[in-house]
Design a protein around this nucleic acid. Structure first.
Length: 871
RNA sequence: GGGAGCAUAGCUCAGUUGGUUUAGAGCAUCUCGUUUACACCGAGAGGGUCCGCGGUUCGAACCCGUGUGCUCCCA
């Protein structure tokens, strides 16, 4: 078959993925083999594949494919997260386009639209993963709102409530005025903002004086219920115990003292608005101040504000400047830079707000989760994230789990008209509880909580509930697959998700959820900016796959992404991947071209050295790669593979065994060469599954597939043989360099004379050496040869005889530079060795090594000097 | 303000318990080359005060202290 000039990935990739699927290679059922399980971090149903997913899933696929090739029962579970806030926002937007407002719909009507949306768009991202070659067990595709999963989430709520870990409390929360929901602290992003600091005068009761208060949020003064100063502040001592009037509304409020107030910020006097600031709220609690909520849930001013009712608080902020100024109550306005919270989802400026929310108290359930990581029952890669984890877990705060949304798991709590609440699995059970207090209640009297649970309150069950570990306790699958082996995720969700999964695992399975956590970096653009839709710096992944092929994209993203380090995405890495594909393709073409020239009678004497060397080098690299992969050093393992194939195999081995133009090749050499290629495709397969499978099949007829082929045990490498090959490389490079420097053209032939104590070594590699440095003959000599180019490698000397006229200056310069280096080196070694304390204190083998270095350097210097003289 | 981390070649990073040459790789750069697998290529080369300053040690890129700069997380 005639192969195309360059590798064309698209058709090949689609074909192989279908083939693997049809063979059922990705399916897993419990059996007697060791399980290797990964649960995919479920992407949002709203998601489309981006670089972060690409990195994350490539890593998982590498791990799972490797496990499969090690003969383990590999199970990689796909799925999606209902992502309550993000999805609800999308559905609301979709409805708006159709001219429907959410408020015009009933809860059930809205959810119907939401499910419709989910069915239509929810699976897109999973389809895209197929393009990347991800070997997921598609039959297991899970969703955080599947019926059983839903049930389990509710059950966990009931259970935690029963154990006293869930409570309902009025707390200051972050309020998203656009989404009209509470946000957890983690969903708030603090940004530096240019604000104004308004100095506002409050009239003091009983005289005509004022006290000036500084604030960046003048619209909140309608909620003021005190002014606070530091008790030590001399400026205000005369005002202790007095009252002031809040501007415009003239509410009479006390001046209180607390050392929370800093003396040197603003005017030293703080307006206290318990309803709209977390610190003020705490002051309010301490001094029993009235709480006046002046905001509606959409961020407009409420009736309690008395002024500007129904207007947005940010518009009011602007208007306040004029109104206060007109009233003569604005002393001055300063420019001021401060940190302000914004909603991660809607980018709305977050308002601190008092609200009744459901909470999980974390201290108790966090304890075993902290322990399992600290004692390395769960290993973090890289381990540096342990510290971060510990710090967070030791200072853990309660978790606000209610969200004012409809799309999600509805909170299983029912309220009686008098406000009393019952937590129960359903309305009937709730009624029974509520009737204890009021026997006359009926089902129509009680109402279920309108709110949903935080998305993470369902995804923390993911590692076991995808196997129905909670909805069907003790089933065969959960026993077989749990705990899972490796979780691959981004460090930014270590608290949102990783920590909570560990807690849930211990709480409900009595076991850690996974053994290893591999933290990927964040994918950034070339300038180091995080990829985001608003910056428009996130490339279209599917387009990249179209251009470069999935293998090249996988290569590109993996080659420079050590665990836990951010990766700066640069398309040139994909080019490197594509070039690598093409290199592999051309190896195939080269070897295939030899097939019809196989000669079964030809011996392999000249190629024996090359074959021995490569065989051992291959074993050595196989071992190295194993070690690297076991340590989760995926990027380095890929580099090692790359260099084995490109440098050792292509640049050296193939050149050494390559038959001359239209010359035959011995069967033994051909077979070995094919065998090595098969082995290397096997090793590379987890990283670049498509092209390796393709080449594996094209290089020789096969019954099996690489995808589920179990790797043979790695042989021990003979390091002496490997070192022999390295010496040969070194000699060839040195001779080529000398040729280059003396302007010998590649076509110019040379005669080579070797002065060495080990003639035997060189005899075995004569034919390779001739081929590689274009020498017509090799002779051995005991002394220098005149009119030649002299090259020294280790203790051996090489003389290049040529008919071309030589210019010795370049060569001389090289030798002099080498001489200077060696002399400097010798000096440093000698200095070390002449230090008595070194000889006394250092380990004997270290001293011996230094002595060896010294001897080598002296010998080498002698060789160079001799060479210089003969010039 | 509290915490975690990072700083090594132009760029991205390796560098294991301190001693395998006076620090390595890939990409980029430069020189030479179109020899029948591959120019998406080959052969070769140059390039570093291991952030600064102290200390420990016979010996420090590595350990300790300190300064500077950057990143992330939390308030």
């Amino acid at each position: 078959m005639e192969l195309s000039k360059n590798y064309v990935p698209n058709e090949t990739e689609a074909r192989w993925y279908q083939h693997w699927l049809s063979k059922g290679y990705f399916k897993s059922t419990p059996d007697e083999r060791e399980a290797y399980t990964i649960v995919m971090p479920p992407p949002n149903v709203t998601g489309v594949l981006h670089m972060g997913h690409c990195l994350n899933n490539t890593i998982q696929d590498i791990l799972i494919r490797r496990a499969r090739m090690q003969g383990k029962n590999a199970c990689w579970v796909p799925g999606t997260d209902h992502a309550s806030i993000a999805t609800e926002a999308k559905v609301v937007a979709m409805l708006r386009e159709r001219g429907i407002t959410k408020s015009s719909l009933s809860r059930d009507e809205f959810l119907e639209y939401a499910w419709e949306w989910k069915e239509k768009y929810g699976g897109i991202i999973l389809q895209q993963l197929k393009k990347m070659g991800c070997s997921l067990d598609w039959d297991r595709t899970a969703f955080t709102m599947d019926p059983d999963y839903y049930k389990s989430v509710i059950e966990v709520f009931l259970d935690l409530h029963k154990k006293g870990h869930i409570y309902r409390g009025k707390r200051m929360i972050n309020w998203d005025v656009k989404a009209k929901t509470a946000l957890s602290d983690e969903e708030v992003i603090y940004k530096e903002v240019q604000s104004k600091l308004y100095h506002i005068k409050y009239a003091i009761e009983g005289n005509n004086d004022f006290i000036t208060v500084a604030t960046v949020r003048p619209e909140t003064i309608f909620g003021d219920t005190a002014v606070c100063v530091n008790p030590l502040d001399e400026r205000y001592k005369h005002l202790h115990g007095k009252f002031v009037f809040v501007p415009l509304i003239n509410r009479r409020v006390p001046i209180i003292t607390d050392d929370y107030v800093t003396l040197d910020f603003g005017t030293g006097a703080l307006k206290v608005t318990p309803a709209h600031d977390i610190n003020d709220y705490q002051l309010g609690q301490k001094y029993n101040l009235e709480v006046i909520d002046t905001l509606n849930d959409d961020g407009t001013m409420s009736e309690a504000a008395q002024f500007f009712i129904g207007e947005d608080r940010l518009d009011v902020r602007k208007k306040m400047e004029a109104v206060l100024s007109e009233a003569g109550l604005l002393e001055k306005v300063e420019a001021y830079t401060n940190q302000v919270g914004f909603s991660e989802r809607t980018d709305a400026m977050v308002e601190p707000r008092l609200s009744l929310q459901w909470w999980v108290s974390m201290k108790e359930i966090a304890t075993p989760a902290l322990q399992s990581v600290m004692e390395e029952a769960i290993q973090f890669h890289p381990a540096k994230f342990k510290n971060l984890y510990r710090h967070w877990m030791e200072n853990i705060k309660d978790w606000c789990i209610s969200r004012q949304l409809w799309w999600g798991h509805r909170i299983p709590a029912w309220y009686a008209p008098d406000g009393s609440v019952a937590v129960a699995a359903n309305a009937n059970d709730a009624l029974v509880i509520l009737q204890e207090k009021n026997a006359s209640l009926t089902l129509s009297d009680i109402k279920q909580d309108e709110d949903c649970l935080d998305t993470w309150f369902s995804s923390w069950l993911w590692p076991f509930e995808v196997f129905k570990g909670l909805s069907n306790p003790g089933n065969d699958e959960i026993k077989y697959y749990y705990p899972t082996q490796t979780l691959v995720t981004a460090p930014e969700i270590i608290f949102f998700w990783v920590a909570r999964m560990i807690m849930a695992g211990h709480e409900y399975m009595d076991q850690k959820p996974f053994e290893h956590v591999y933290f990927t970096g964040i994918v950034r653009d070339k300038q180091g900016r995080k990829m985001s839709k608003s910056l428009g710096n996130s490339p279209d992944l599917l387009a990249l796959i179209d251009v470069y092929g999935a293998d090249a994209v996988r290569f590109g993203i993996m080659i420079s992404s050590p665990a836990g380090n951010d990766i700066l995405f640069d398309e040139s890495a994909l080019e490197q991947g594509r070039n690598f594909n093409n290199k592999l393709w051309n190896v195939l073409k080269l070897i295939q071209g030899w097939e019809k020239r196989i000669d079964t009678n030809l011996d392999a004497q000249n190629e024996k050295f090359a074959m021995d060397w490569f065989e051992n080098r291959l074993s050595q690299v196989q071992q190295e790669v194993d070690v690297l992969l076991n340590g989760f050093k995926l990027s380095e393992a890929l580099k090692t593979n790359y260099s084995l194939i490109w440098d050792d195999y292509c640049s050296w081995y193939l050149e050494w065994i390559k038959p001359g133009f239209e010359q035959p090749i011995s069967k033994e050499v051909y077979d070995k060469t094919v065998h090595y290629l098969n082995e290397m495709m096997h090793m590379l397969h987890p990283f670049m599954p498509f092209i390796t499978e393709e080449i594996y099949h094209l290089i020789s007829p096969k019954q099996d597939d690489l995808c589920n082929k179990i790797a043979a045990p790695v042989k021990e490498a003979n390091t002496d043989i490997v070192a022999g090959g390295e010496l040969l490389k070194q000699v060839i490079s040195a001779l080529r360099d000398a040729r280059n420097k003396n302007q010998l053209k590649p076509k110019d032939t040379i005669t080579l004379y070797i002065q060495t104590a080990n003639t035997g070594t060189y005899k075995t590699i004569e034919s390779i050496l001739c081929k590689q440095v274009n020498a017509t003959s090799i002779e051995y000599t005991n002394s220098s040869i005149d009119n030649t180019i002299v090259v020294a490698v280790e203790k051996d000397k090489f003389f290049i005889g040529t008919s071309i006229e030589l210019d010795a200056t370049a060569l001389k310069a090289t030798l002099l530079a080498d001489l200077a280096y060696q002399k400097g080196f010798l000096e440093s070694v000698t200095k070390k060795l002449s230090n008595e304390r070194f000889v006394q204190n250092a380990k004997p083998e270290v001293v011996a090594l230094e002595q060896q270095k010294q001897a080598d350097a002296i010998a080498r210097i002698a060789t160079i000097e001799e060479s210089l003289q003969s010039l």
